[in-house]
Amino acid sequence: MSATEAGSAQVKSAVRTVQLLEFFAGRPGMHTLAGVQEALGYPKSSLYMLLRTLVDLGWVEADATGTRYGIGVRALLVGTSYLDGDEVVAAAKPTLDRLAAQTTETIHLARLDGTDVVYLATRASQHHLRPFSRAGRRLPAHSTSLGKALLATHTDAEVRTLLPARLARVTDNTLTDPEELLEELRLVREQGYAIDREENTLGLRCFGIAVPYRSPARDAISCSVPVARLTPAHEQAVKSALFDARDQLMQAARTL
């Protein structure tokens, strides 16, 4: 094998390793070798050897029978190190704490990653009725206020390039027509905030604002409120608090 061929094989192996880890990360639970092979299309023999290597290294876990596989604890260590080392997440902590106390609702800081948004930090609501959320959660950008706020900082042409050809329907309220989504993004640019009208979770309305310390923006903050307790006055208070928090985050970002 030539040096060029050897290099190509090493790159191919690295790509397969990353794709395998991303497969497990996006599908919680344990999976059979046949199920993984069907989803990824790798040769079964090489897939088995890759899985066993990752099990030995702690990146993948196997069940007691050794026939089902899932994400390993090493992936958690890498994920937390990303958050621990991110300057924006660290700088945002006081602002997120104040925003959560002021609104009494669930607060998110998220980052655009391809066609999704990924939660970087969350603050739980003080109410019994509240949404479940966690850092590391990945959601389609087009179905969230966070994602729409971030997409709106791009041009229409850029949005068309960023988004997949088919927009997944998360709930009956999700915008799946690209032209309707683009029209809403134009409104987001005008008003400065985005709204998720039960498009990702039924019974939940979310308000999101991009934090444009770079252009286009990559981070945004949001506030999620169950529609059962969302009054016009509370909605206005939430929006006002989000704008103040955005300005505080922008000021914090200037010191990084």
Rank of each mutant, 00 (worst) to 15 (best):
P140T: 13
T103F: 06
G203M: 10
L120I: 00
L162S: 09
V159T: 10
A110P: 02
S143N: 03
D116C: 12
A100S: 12
A110E: 09
A141M: 07
T161S: 13
T153A: 00
D172P: 00
Y119C: 00
D86A: 11
S145I: 03
T122M: 04
L182P: 10
D84W: 03
A101G: 10
L163M: 15
D116G: 01
N173D: 12
L112D: 02
R123E: 14
S81H: 11
P164F: 05
N173P: 00
L120K: 05
V89R: 04
P140I: 11
D84S: 09
I209Y: 01
A90G: 01
A135V: 05
L120P: 00
T106F: 01
R205E: 12
R130Y: 01
I107P: 04
G114H: 10
R205Y: 03
A124L: 13
A91P: 00
A141H: 08
A165P: 00
R166C: 08
T201S: 12
A100M: 03
N200M: 07
G147S: 09
A90L: 11
A91Y: 02
T176P: 05
T95R: 00
A91K: 06
L162P: 05
N173Y: 07
V211Y: 09
T95I: 09
N200E: 12
L109N: 05
G203V: 07
H127R: 14
D172F: 02
L162A: 08
R111E: 15
